[in-house]
Nucleic acid binder design. Structure first.
Length: 229
DNA sequence: CACCAGGGTGGTT
DNA sequence: AACCACCATGGT
């Protein structure tokens, strides 16, 4: 079972260790959605630059964005990378929202309905859909990303139980509020940046008071020690 | 030059 | 439902 990790406790430790992250930095719900697509496989720094470029062109609006040329979009969002793919996907996403009468037009949908509709769009998978649900619609969902899987894997004694489907339900059951889930995911990302992806166990992979610490770390066995000297 | 970033898709088990 | 290989770019 995934009960190996107590998510509510982990959440409190991460909060104490890193402080509130105040996600999602954006001026509107639509901007959050746009950012969620643009940040795929990129740093927030680069995605934010693309969002600002769109703002400068007055395109942070479903209607305007849905009729912008693919060429213009590609040029504007270039800093976010993968622009040849993201441009048409971004426009289709804007068209979907515009067709619903704006972001508010989707508020009436149930979380699972909205999730299905988002995932049906090209370029939006489970992660981006959940990010949109959580940060633009304040729905109580847990985002299973690489950071979460890696962190949980290192905290849990039985990695085999850490499956996406199980986690999505288990974490929400232990931490039901969208407010906390918002902060939890942001903290996991923040913590993820401080740990290392290749060394199975290093001191920074730990969470204060909740995990294996320096005592059972055998850095010498690991072939890579790039991130930590 | 290598590696990474707030993944997605399509095809398999 | 989970896993896999492959894909696509800018930054450091």
């Amino acid at each position: 079972m995934a009960g190996d990790v107590q998510f509510a406790l982990l959440y409190r430790r991460l909060l104490a260790q890193h402080g509130a992250q105040h996600w999602w930095p954006a001026a509107s719900r639509f901007e959050i959605i746009v950012g969620a697509l643009l940040v795929q496989r990129t740093t927030w720094h680069n995605a934010a630059a693309a969002v600002e470029a769109l703002r400068g062109a007055d395109l942070l609006d479903p209607g305007a964005l849905s009729v912008a040329s693919e060429w213009q979009l590609g040029r504007l969002i270039k800093p976010a990378g993968f622009h040849s793919r993201k441009a048409p996907r971004l426009r289709a996403l804007a068209a979907y929202i515009d067709g619903a009468g704006g972001v508010e037009g989707l508020d009436g949908l149930s979380t699972s309905e909205l999730r299905d509709q988002l995932i049906a769009l090209d370029g939006i998978g489970a992660e981006t859909a959940d990010a949109i649900l959580l940060y633009a619609f304040e729905r109580a969902v847990f985002i299973v990303d690489a950071y979460a899987l890696r962190l949980f894997d290192r905290l849990s004694g039985s990695p085999a139980s850490l499956k996406p489907g199980i986690l999505r339900s288990t974490v929400v059951a232990q931490l039901p509020g969208s407010r906390d889930l918002n902060e939890f995911h942001a903290l996991i990302v923040a913590h993820g940046k401080t740990i290392c992806r290749r060394i199975p166990r290093c001191e920074r992979c730990s969470v204060q008071g909740l995990c294996r610490t320096a005592a059972d770390i055998d850095v010498g066995r690991h072939p890579y020690r790039k991130t930590h000297a």
